[in-house]
Amino acid sequence: MKVTIKQWTGVASWKWVANDDNCGICRMPFDGCCPDCKLPGDDCPLVWGQCSHCFHMHCIVKWLQSQPVNQQCPMCRQEWKFNNK
């Protein structure tokens, strides 16, 4: 062996695994955060429903709170259930 690697400082960027570019509720890109937050990341996470639609957590929670009777996905009108994958 002439050469061995001792240290490696790598760089990676992260993205949400979402099937859309923008949040269906606030229309902000998922790369950013919901209108109430300043920084994307763990403070403003995405959540997925069992219908496979995905939103900013803050946005969908606000939406669900405004819907006292039927908790539906705002995109497909199926019953909203969190998908805890």
Binding site: T4, I5, S13, V47
Partner: peptide, 21 residues
């Protein structure tokens, strides 16, 4: 640690310390 994300490696920016004989 962070579910719902994917990682994209950026090889252009990485650097290493290499031992060479």
């Amino acid at each position: 640690k962070h579910s719902g994300r994917k990682l994209q490696w950026q090889p252009t920016l990485g650097y290493c310390v290499v031992k060479a004989q």
